[in-house]
Design a protein around this nucleic acid. Structure first.
Lengths: 239, 239
DNA sequence: GAGTGGTCTAGACCACCCC
DNA sequence: GGGTGGTCTAGACCACTCT
């Protein structure tokens, strides 16, 4: 199951902290104790603890130990590379996805620029609305290079596209760049979402890269103002 | 100057990549070559390369090498724990800070909640507007525990509070939690900023912690809609 | 097969914290 | 002084890429 020892340790503790069986302020065993407990070396334990620290689960204090952080973070979408499906499941909300469009289209000049295409070749386009507790709040517009995603079934689009890409197509997704801004609503937004009278909308542009650094997906996630929230955890770089 | 070898390597390469003397796609020396060049071990080199990778500077491919990423990221404030001053200097924009308030006040119920205070003790409050190219666009409201920040000079508030906290008070700032949302403008926003007719404003709530995990600062950064941008870089967790 | 990055080891010394 | 985390070493074996 867990090929790597450090991943095993990381998974053990992140699960315990998320589930609440380890609560804020509690002290973890020392690195030497963990190394012995897992039958590994201290550096391997340290790698796991470093990841827990990077992801906001614990905090390490020299001379004292590692401590669980107060972490009811991640209130809503878009932190890290977490998918909408993962987040809504975690929240246990009543969520529905409506697929408006799921087809191969010639790319417009704007999409070609976003995907860094030389010519206006075809792209696979998916347009979906996310309905949360009866209101259509988020509009997701996805564009994929047809080289990697020649087509997508309605089932894949309705469930999780990422699940399909990673588990079926085995695309090695590596990293993403996200840009958040606020823009004026478009007629399309008004038509496809329950926007009330808001004149602006939060736009999250997502550029997704494979491990060979090719850009293969561009996504525009358009959120109704009042329902948008983004949570971020950051560590100050030490000197 | 650089106490740690890995920091030395990290600083060397992050500087070269930021300055553009290493450009996107270029290959770094192999880990073994770097270890020899810096007269250190491979694990130490790997620690530096891991940090470069985490911060979006490079990308590592097993069997091939480490490559510089296309990185004109960080378009505007609020990514990582970077201060306003650091960012505006990097952008080379004409920026001015106006201090409206800089004093010790009793905390309101809301501020006490944000700073997790038991009682309504005093806090040091700073209210500043950020003027960019002639327009007051950002309103920063900072609240500090007086235990750590008994007072602040106008100079510190006008320049960089962080610089003062870290270099003069030697406060060990460790990590922060950031929440971004969009809210309705308040009369205070209208009065202190050049808001045009926008009815909403982007609010970035920032909770800053010291290394001993005490929360010592709460900041509300209120950005005019059209000028707000947030850029984030994220890696997909590998399995 | 040679070169690369990914994981892991079993030590070492240091700086810091607390008693 | 004993325990803690922070840094570093000099090896090892593996999986992967390229040719």
């Amino acid at each position: 199951m867990n090929k790597n020892i450090y991943m095993h340790i990381y998974n053990d503790y992140s699960a315990q902290i998320q589930s609440g069986s380890l609560s804020a302020g509690q002290k973890l065993p020392s690195e030497n104790e963990l190394a012995e407990a897992y039958g590994t070396s201290r550096e391997t334990v340290r790698k796991a603890l470093h990841m827990l620290s990077e992801n906001g689960y614990i905090h390490k204090i020299k001379g004292k130990g590692s401590f669980v952080l107060d972490t009811q973070r991640m209130s809503f979408p878009v932190s890290g590379l977490v998918t909408f499906k993962e987040v809504s499941e975690r929240l246990g909300r009543s969520v529905r996805t409506i697929v408006y469009e799921n087809e191969c289209v010639p790319s417009t000049a704007e999409i070609a620029r976003c995907l860094q295409l030389k010519d206006l070749g075809p792209v696979w386009k998916v347009v979906r609305a996310r309905e949360i507790e009866g209101e259509k709040i988020i509009l997701d517009k996805d564009y994929f290079l047809t080289t990697y995603v020649p087509s997508l079934s309605i089932e894949a689009a309705t469930n999780s596209i990422y699940e399909y890409l990673e588990q079926k197509l085995h695309l090695p997704i590596s990293y993403a760049k996200k840009e958040i801004s606020v823009e004026e609503v478009t007629p399309e937004d008004k038509q496809l979402l329950d926007l009330h009278d808001y004149q602006h909308i939060v736009v999250v542009r997502n550029y997704v890269y494979l491990v060979d650094t090719t850009l293969f997906q561009y996504t525009e996630s358009r959120h109704r103002l009042d329902k948008f929230q983004f949570v971020d955890f950051a560590r100050r770089v030490q000197n």
